[in-house]
């Protein structure tokens, strides 16, 4: 892993040295940083070598390896973000950060799979957030170090070019699997649902969750040709008979409630692909995994990075660790 916690002065030094940086930290520390080759997003939660931690005083720094050929930092809004795949380097990868719950976040979540050249180039990233005590008081933000721009709505992307002989790949580690239970389908795409189909029978989803005593800390899981993709529950509004999610559900996909997890850390470390250690350039994990599995103070197999309000591996994911590897084809 090439990331670690830094003080503000350490980050300033790295920026002055011309390092290419991906930063995560509280707004008050990120806004102290000078212009440079960096992008960042707000969050005060991290997985570190010492374990999960919350701090508003330090910055999680991912330093891109010196072997990269070039970078281009771009700021997008809802109308320009559909170009994110076509703007990517032919051989390289792109890192995206979007503030939680802004228009661009919601649009990306719903529409990314329809963007031109979707998934053609590696796209990884995260949704920025705030301390849970600040929810509703402070808005999540993203920063472009190139122009010292701060955005509450938009996306900042670093498009990275790799030299010949090196390639990038995106992976996910999702410990959740589909249970053997009912198949749930949705009549339309969206972040909320009322009427759904349970094994083909139209049913109010809020009432179904209550009647079945579903544990809403466990996500819905869809099978994308063998890749398990989660949608996390945000809330069940019994009064309005409506269920809200942290990522959109999509019409036609077949979802199942996840199997229960006994011990997140044990399951996580047992599923961590071996031999990846030094190849992993960047990773992040979900705030819901951090909270529900009580990861504060616990280590997750040496994998570090920001704890996020959503993860991006080509599209928006929930309750999933995502990671980027750079592979030396000559090795």
């Amino acid at each position: 892993m090439s990331g670690c916690m830094n003080t503000v002065s350490q980050v300033k030094e790295k920026i002055a040295q011309g390092k290419k940086l991906l930063l995560a930290g509280d707004e008050r520390v990120l806004e102290q940083l000078p212009p440079g080759d960096w992008i960042g997003g707000t969050i005060p939660y991290f997985m570190t070598e010492q374990g999960g931690m919350a701090t508003k005083d330090q910055v999680y720094v991912t330093e891109l390896p010196g072997t990269i050929s070039d970078i281009a930092i771009k700021v997008y809004d809802e109308s320009t973000l559909p170009h994110v795949y076509t703007d990517a380097a032919k051989n390289g990868f792109s890192i995206i950060i979007i503030p939680a719950m802004c228009t661009t976040h919601l649009s990306f979540a719903l529409n990314a799979p329809n963007y031109k050249d979707f998934a053609i180039h590696p796209l990884i990233g995260w949704i920025s957030g705030v301390h849970l005590d600040d929810l509703g008081k402070i808005k999540p933000k993203v920063f472009s170090g190139l122009t010292n721009t701060v955005l509450e709505d938009g996306a900042v992307v670093m498009h990275v070019t790799l030299p010949p002989g090196r390639v990038a790949d995106v992976g996910i580690l999702n410990i959740f699997e589909q249970s053997a239970g009912d198949t749930i389908t949705f009549p339309q795409d969206g972040f909320s649902a009322r009427e759904v189909y349970i094994n083909g029978v139209k049913t109010n989803f809020a009432e179904y969750i209550s009647a079945q005593h579903l544990d809403t800390r466990l996500p819905l899981v869809a099978d994308y040709y063998g890749a398990m993709v989660n949608v996390s529950f945000q809330s069940v509004d019994a009064a309005n008979r409506q269920v809200h999610f942290y990522a959109p559900v999509f019409a036609g996909l077949r979802y199942k409630h996840a199997k229960p997890i006994e011990n997140y850390v044990r399951q996580f470390t047992s599923q961590m692909p071996t031999k990846l250690g030094k190849q992993i350039v960047f990773s992040c994990n979900c705030i819901l995994n951090y909270l529900y599995s009580e990861l504060e103070g616990k280590q997750t197999g040496g994998i570090t990075g920001p704890i996020t309000f959503g993860e991006v591996a080509y599209q928006l994911l929930n309750q999933t660790m995502v990671y980027l590897t750079i592979i030396d084809l000559a090795a």
Binding site: P113, F118, A119, I120, P122, D169, V170, G171, I172, A222, D223, Y224, Y225, G226, A227, V229, L253, A313, Y314, Q315
Partner: peptide, 9 residues
Amino acid sequence: LAAKILLGR
């Protein structure tokens, strides 16, 4: 992974 996610769609 990209093929799996794309194929899901």
